[in-house]
Amino acid sequence: MSKRQVAMVMDLNKCIGCQTCTVACKTLWTRNEGQKHMLWNTVNTQPGQGTPHNWEKMGGGFRNGEPQPGHRPGVGDFGKAWDFNYKEAFHGGEPGVRLAPLGGEPGQGPNHDEDVGGGTYPDNYFFYLPRLCNHCTHPACLEACPRKAIEKREEDGIVLINEDHCRGFRFCQEACPYKKIYFNEARGISQKCIFCFPRLDQGVANACARQCPGRLRFVGYLDDPDGPIHKLVHKYGVALPLHPEYGTEPNVYYVPPLSPSKHDADGKPTGEMQIPLDYLESLFGKKVHQVLALLIDEREKNRKGEKSELMDILIAREWIKNFGPFDKHPRSIENIKVVVK
């Protein structure tokens, strides 16, 4: 157990599936050799196959404290990162040749079923679920690694794969029930979200959080009573871990999504939300019922003109306050100033 734990809360009611987080992470961390297919941060439409495809059926994690065998996702599960015939298409190929992915049938990428979801029109439903490494309190990856190449930082609980020690045995990939570990074929090592530790070390929030235009990400220490994380996770209890039954105690939490009311045959609202509650329960556990009820109540307070600290936190009028102590501007570090030629 680390001394302190940083955590992230994502409010799914504010997630619009724009993937700015995914791009922010991609451009900062995973453009090197062997990383083409890596998206340490992903956003998928739920219900859906997710990234890697069907990850929820891949095992891992713990049951009754016992590690569970898991499937080891491969590049195909994560979705191919296609290359394209640009040169042929624009310079010298047969006139009118199609720009297309190389390598035959493209298969399905990491986000192929975007905006599909489940149910039958007009009672269908979907929402967006952004995911990254959960930096668990009880990390299955760390415990599975025979080389002890995975550390949980003492000072903030960030879980990191030591790339010098990693030998690419990929037990971590199997053991992680969230399947957020990628394998770098070119380097023969496993890689995953580093929770932007170089940024956090300098007081700057994670790229995925700070670049999120939906403003749904909160970052901070779980034990900081004044920070939004503590209030959302502990004080109001509206932020829940994903699949708590996986037994790893994630430190990424979600405010579950509200949805429009279903209609009956007369077009009248049934009061039943478009997203089935048992589906949400399967993702976030039984607490999801009371959380949704609380969100509805607190919103109603605001609607009547009453104060609600919870709504104020989730609204995030001053965006920078979402990041607790990690509120420094990236440009302010290392003394690099704006240069105007």
Binding site: P67, G70, A144, P146, F171, E174, A175
Partner: peptide, 10 residues
């Protein structure tokens, strides 16, 4: 003698 519970279990 495998070093981790996961390896043994799996």
């Amino acid at each position: 003698m495998q070093p981790t519970g996961y390896v043994i279990k799996s």
